[in-house]
Amino acid sequence: MPDYDLLIFDWDGTLADSIGRIVDAMQHAAVACGLLPRDATQVKGIIGLGLPEAIQALYPRLSEAEVLTFRDQYAQRYIALEASPSPLFPGVAEGLELFRQAGYRLAVATGKARRGLDRVLKGHSLESFFDITRAADETRSKPHPLMLEEILAYCGVRPDRALMIGDSAFDLQMARNAGMPCVAVGYGAIELDALMAYEPVLAVERFAQLTAWLSPGEPLSSKGE
């Protein structure tokens, strides 16, 4: 059985099925700003970055003021789309509860801003579920390892005892930069084949596969006893 103390999850595309809404909001913001919308594949390729970094990656010639305008247009559209929070992927709610019962520490490391993360956590009644959450606007954007280092320090866990679970190259590169093992999920923004270069300890196409891998054939309540 894999032996970890801390599980750190990306949010968009890993826990929540929100990729389509992100693509929609990014394309809407481009049109509103008089820019050529990027296609879905291009937008998916920047998911995981903080929003300003994502906009600059898609439109590197924008001025700082133009990035702010684009960000406002994106936020307005995304908040409207999120009137009902993006659903969790199948098996996520059950798996997270099983992990907590098993004694794992749980955290979120996301490219969302704090306001957006708090909104979706509240929408899913998960405000106090995780030991710690870190958002891109309160630390360094992925793939810089700072948000993982802050989570590790808060939880008092070594990098080799923690596991980063994510659906983007930025998630897995961040884990590598922090000296942490990672799990690649293939049901989010990026196809699994493109993530294998980061040498994940596990690659899954369903969240239930992660749940089974972390607790195979063992009563969950026995972990840590």
Rank of each mutant, 00 (worst) to 15 (best):
A175L: 06
M164P: 04
F89L: 03
H124L: 04
M26G: 02
L210Q: 03
I132N: 00
L51W: 11
R61A: 15
R176V: 07
Y198R: 12
A83N: 04
D160P: 09
A153M: 09
E97C: 03
L148W: 14
A184L: 10
P143Q: 13
D3Y: 06
A75T: 13
L7M: 09
R105E: 07
P200S: 14
W213G: 00
P219R: 08
L195M: 14
Q209C: 01
E199G: 10
V201H: 02
A197G: 04
K122P: 07
W213K: 00
W11F: 10
D160A: 12
G217L: 04
D167M: 11
F9P: 03
V23K: 03
A25P: 11
V201E: 05
P90H: 06
K122N: 10
Q173P: 13
P85E: 06
A80P: 01
G20Q: 08
G20R: 05
L68S: 14
G217P: 03
E66M: 00
I151R: 08
A212C: 08
S86V: 07
S63Y: 01
A57M: 11
V120N: 04
R100M: 10
R21Q: 13
G123E: 12
K112C: 10
A80R: 08
A93M: 01
E82K: 00
E199P: 04
R115K: 13
L117S: 11
L6Q: 02
G13E: 02
L49T: 06
P145N: 06
L36T: 09
E53Y: 03
S18T: 07
P216R: 00
L7P: 07
A75W: 00
H124R: 10
L202K: 10
A107C: 14
P216H: 00
L15I: 01
V183C: 15
A169F: 12
L148T: 05
R21Y: 14
S84K: 15
V204T: 08
L192T: 05
R140S: 09
A83R: 13
M164H: 09
C155N: 13
L210A: 07
M180L: 09
